[in-house]
Structures are given as structure tokens and as C-alpha cells.
Amino acid sequence: MALTNKTIQDKLREKFGEQVYAFEEPYGLLTFAADKDINLKVLNFLHQDEELNFVFLTDLCGVHYPDNKGKELGVVYHLHNLEQNIRVRMKIYTEVGKPEVFTATSIFMAANWMERETFDFFGINFLGHPNMKRILNVDEMDYSPLRKEFPVEDQSRVDKDDEMFGRDVIRAF
């Protein structure tokens, strides 16, 4: 039987009840949110269940919504069922004051570098990760550059005339 978004949604609802919510299908891609404490349980269920069979972690990334009080930082997982060619997207949110999320490395090895990247750019700490350190930026960097409070331009720059280099207004968030 072909797997449909409806079956996936029903199975998740049946298993996790109200802890998975905000189901929607933008452009046909089933998207939902889950409580951050059960992210591993949901991922494991999607991975291990014989019918769901989401064996491939396509992408894992962070998002920052500064106005979303108590849920400022998001982690987004994209999973792929390779046999039926169906994808799902799962989002979890955490507060910016305590950005701690359980690592998915025990379920998907691919999560290792992607979680390091998310740690690097958003400062989300993945609990239990085997090697939680910066991956792309220089090790000396002391902030998370993709959080909205940091403008993309390097603010520590002192060697140039800002006006001459097109930086007439410092855009603070």
C-alpha cells in the first residue's frame, strides 16, 4: 500500500497524541511540530516503524524566530522514505535562554556534522553529541552568527571607513 501523508499523520497522532501538532502540507510536504523532549522518540518511530520507514536524514538545520517567545530557536529535520519517495519535515522549538536539544546522532549518523553546523551558527547545544564543536567558522569566534541580533556584516571591523565601503547605517536588529 502506498504511504500517504494522511497515514503518516494518523500514525503519529495515534502514537504521540497531542505532543505532535501543527500539521500542514505546504506544497505537499507533510510538516509538523513536536515537543522538544520527545524529538528522539518521534525520529526513532519514523525510522524504525516498518510502514513509515524514513531511513534517510536529508537535512537538519536551525531557525531563529526572535519574536516567538519561549520558542525562539527551532531545529528542523527533513526525513526521506527512499522506497516510496516520500518526505516529511519535523520542527522542534527551544527557548533561547536554554538552547538544549537531544542529539539525533544515535539514530542518524548523518546528524553529526549537521548538528555541529547548527551549533556553530545558532548556538544550539545538542546534548549527547560525540563532538560538539564548531565546524565551519573559525574556532575563535565567540558568537552565533546566524542569530538575528547579529548583522551579517562583521561588527568588529575597524580598519575601514564604513561610508566608503557602503556601510553608512549600521543595521542593528
Binding site: N137, P145, F150, V152, E153, D154, D159, K160, F165, G166
Partner: peptide, 14 residues
């Protein structure tokens, strides 16, 4: 020479 158009946190400004 100067970082060029890449006025960014990751690029050396020259």
C-alpha cells in the same frame, strides 16, 4: 585587497 563585496562575518577584510 579589501574583502570586496563580502562584508561578512566569515570573510577576511583584505
Amino acid at each position: 585587497s579589501s574583502g570586496g563585496i563580502f562584508d561578512s562575518y566569515s570573510v577576511l577584510q583584505g
